[in-house]
Amino acid sequence: MATTSQPAKKHTAGAFDIRNFIGVLLGIFGVVLLFMGLFADKEYAKTGNINANLWAGIVLVVVSAVFITWARLRPIIVPDDVEAPAVDPTRPGPTRH
């Protein structure tokens, strides 16, 4: 997102917001499990007669939605100019590139 034309506007971290990242991954897992729960062998002998994939899938999709909504409601704003970390002579470290 180019913000050069509107210097006052700040942009959000978007995909690099870790909450979106967690949300999408858990969402994919959830959808796969939902699909398994609905269409594949339920394997009731293993789970003790509960549709484990279906329930786990539902929970994962809900958690995924919570993370993505949270990231939408309170986005991380990336300032256009971040001050470079000051070089601290008592704490020398590798230079950033």
Binding site: V32, L33, M36, K46, T47, A52, N53, A56
Partner: peptide, 11 residues
């Protein structure tokens, strides 16, 4: 091996 159905097993 004993309690998870395929799918959850992958997770």
């Amino acid at each position: 091996r004993d309690v998870l159905p395929n799918g959850l097993l992958g997770v």
